[in-house]
């Protein structure tokens, strides 16, 4: 089985979001991921990257933060890994809105949790672990 890997490092600032999405979509196109799945994966990555930048680094006062991104693909799975040295944050522990919360009229709704929800629900598998001082967020999309 052939595995192809591409990596990139991005400054942890909001103006990197566009280049992060472009990196994901360019890699997806090169490695044969269809455009619908590429869009959803870019969205999932954008949401977690936004969280890392805003909460992990900026609000915690950590300067000069970076996010390392590795994209890899074999015959079955396309995966993206984000590594950062911001404060530990596990998106799998976040409460995401349930069906009842999502049917509340917009006038009365709290907006929280949508980003994490979009990240987790737009890929086939989402994993998180903390190792050697790094948050490691992994997104997997099945190719078939």
């Amino acid at each position: 089985m052939n595995t192809t890997t591409v990596s990139g490092t991005f400054t942890a600032t909001l103006d990197s979001l566009g280049s992060i999405r472009k990196f994901i979509s360019d890699s997806g196109r090169t490695l044969g991921l269809d455009s619908g799945k590429t869009y959803k994966l870019s969205l999932a990555v954008d949401e977690i990257a936004t969280n890392i930048i805003n909460h992990g680094y900026t609000e915690s006062g950590i300067k000069n933060g970076r996010i390392d991104i590795t994209v890899s693909s074999d015959d079955k799975v396309f995966s993206v890994t984000l590594e950062d040295t911001a404060v530990p944050f596990n998106p799998l522990e976040s409460k995401i809105p349930d069906e009842a919360a999502l049917s509340i009229p917009l006038e009365q709704r709290t907006i929280g949790g949508l980003g994490i929800m979009l990240a987790r629900e737009n890929v086939d598998e989402f994993r998180y672990h903390f190792s050697k001082g790094k948050n490691i967020n992994t997104f997997c999309v099945n190719l078939k």
Binding site: D46, T50, E107
Partner: peptide, 20 residues
């Protein structure tokens, strides 16, 4: 060509303002 939860938040705030 792309909307994240930040775009949804924007839609929500516009909706609330106008509906009020």
């Amino acid at each position: 060509d792309f909307v994240s939860s930040a775009g949804l938040r924007m839609l929500l705030l516009i909706y609330r303002q106008i509906k009020s």
